[in-house]
Design a binder for these strands. Structure first.
Lengths: 192, 192, 192, 192
DNA sequence: AATGAATGAGCCTTCATTCAT
DNA sequence: TATGAATGAAGGCTCATTCAT
């Protein structure tokens, strides 16, 4: 498996179906049998690829989270100014989430639920480090306020997440202009 | 029986137990029978006070949300400066949530789930108006940035919520100093 | 009680409500609490008048059955010819049932169910005897066919019941003419 | 397992058990779990074969009704005289019901209850037409009285049903002689 | 007599998981 | 690998009945 052969990518099909269904219906309104139906496999085989429904969801989280972090850090480089790096993270994050609303809904739900394991997926270490590094370096360079990294995160990426959430709930229209204005405001929040 | 205790406020006991259990275990891991056990009543009587489990949860939401909004707006007055009003809302919100972690966990979970009815409880109108009014007035007065109210909310109250969430998850220690520093940062974000 | 005083005829009100509700909804779709609501009493008091729901239904059966038999034999006299007596029973039965559709529906349901106790209510003995006597006398007199009384009953009253049932189900319009024609046919069936 | 037995016809076993239990105990005294126990399956699997308890009962009705009608019309032919055809229907009906008392009890209960859907099962159309045709043709030929078909049905098949019901209740012994005598009486009722 | 809150057993149904094929 | 019938443990909810008042 994992070879790339299309015919047998059942595992991927299962994860896709699970993402779509859970995003729309929630964990507990998404029976394993429904994931099986939608992904075109039998219920039994799901237990060949995943140990349990919970394990399937956890694995889905890892996949989706990694994807998100990779998109967000795409093109990141220390050659950019701090503001430039911030803007890149901001724009990437917003674009990715807006174009992957199921992923956003799933992450939101997952991270607000008791499924949440406090630790982040291991594969994401590089991307995480990069983002954390941005804030640490910015503080050290005196460009960013001297606040704990989690606070700076809440003041920037957290806000972006909140705005996209409202966009997806259609209680706010987040176009490029508004996104840029919000980025400015966040920069005011975190920069010295 | 139980003379000294509250005079058989079963309804209240049920809501209390539900809040505690759901905050810890989630809606779907909290059977009605468990709520009954913890609140010391029979399972059947719950359906005397509430039409269904969902209705119980919705009612709990209304109660908890109203409580939260009332705490947050306690002492609010247009006599205060904009910054003063902002600080009051900020401090009230953070204090209330930190001292009511179950309520916070419940609200977070509820508002990220499909239980969420898009409309806010009717009893909260006054408090909501007050908060919204703060932002609208501030923009009109040129004190706050000319951004849509939801964006200003995300940049301020949203950040507070995020910080408290991390505090409760014990990934951040949110003492008064840090809270004040974060409030400063948010003020930078929203003020002109 | 039983004095005739209107104010306190709760027992009657309960039976009335039970008849109406059970006729429309069936035994098992008619909770005791609903009978209480409709009859304007509390659920608890029903157990003062009746030992149990089953006993209430049994009592209702006795009442309704007696009423039916009394109507059917009203005006009966051995002075009439056999055919005259038959017509009287026929017309009485059909009239009563058509004007008491709830009673009919209830009896039908009761007598087809496992609630049915094989013995008839004791208060009806006189009326029963009268009807049975009609058939026995008719056979003895050579006017009616020499068949067991239950068979003669099925061939006459049983048919009337069946016709009224269809009338109430609106699958047949049973006017006086058709009723008379059917009575003629039944008379052909039972007479020598 | 259970090698010799029928090859795991669970669906049939469920219907059989349901028929037996419901005939004896009524719909509402027959929990799904009891049907499962008696038919030797788990409760859950019943919902694999039927959408709900109600659907199971409806399906049972269709099966039993079709079986009944097929037995009743077995050997029917327009080559027979009207009286011959009547006797065939009569004898078939009585034999079938007497040898299938559970089916009779179930049908009686079902058709007197609010489960009854006014329309007959679709699969029975041919048999129904045949029986209705008998009466219509007989009237047209001047052999039967000019009464609406439902009335003629009540006067004949309805009586047969009533007699068998009494037989099963052991309030009447319906042997072949008595059955024949009753058929004669019914013929008197419907023929010109 | 009367109320109606309270109980608790039992019912229908769902669904994660297993297993024979 | 793959299927899908089968299991069985819960879960939400109803309702006959009781009991403190």
């Amino acid at each position: 498996m994992e070879k790339g052969d299309k015919p047998a990518d059942k595992r991927g099909a299962i994860l896709d179906a699970a993402l779509r269904l859970i995003a729309e219906r929630g964990f507990h309104n998404t029976p394993v049998s429904m994931i099986a139906d939608v992904s075109g496999v039998s219920a039994g085989i799901i237990y060949h690829y995943f140990d349990s429904k919970d394990e399937l969801i956890l694995e889905l989280y890892r996949t989706v989270k990694l994807d998100m972090l990779q998109s967000m850090t795409d093109g990141y480089s220390n050659d950019l100014s701090y503001r430039g790096r911030f803007d890149l993270l901001w724009v990437n994050a917003i674009r990715h989430v807006i174009s992957h609303p199921d992923a956003a809904a799933f992450l939101e739900q997952f991270e607000s639920s008791s499924y949440m394991e406090p630790t982040l997926p291991e594969d994401c270490v590089a991307e995480i480090d990069l983002v954390m590094g941005f804030f640490a370096d910015g503080v050290a360079a005196g460009v960013l306020k001297d606040l704990p990294t989690p606070v700076l995160l809440s003041l920037s990426i957290g806000v972006a997440a909140s705005l996209v959430k409202q966009h997806l709930a259609e209680t706010l229209v987040l176009d490029d202009d508004l996104s840029a204005a919000a980025a400015d405001a966040c920069w005011d929040a975190i920069s010295t």
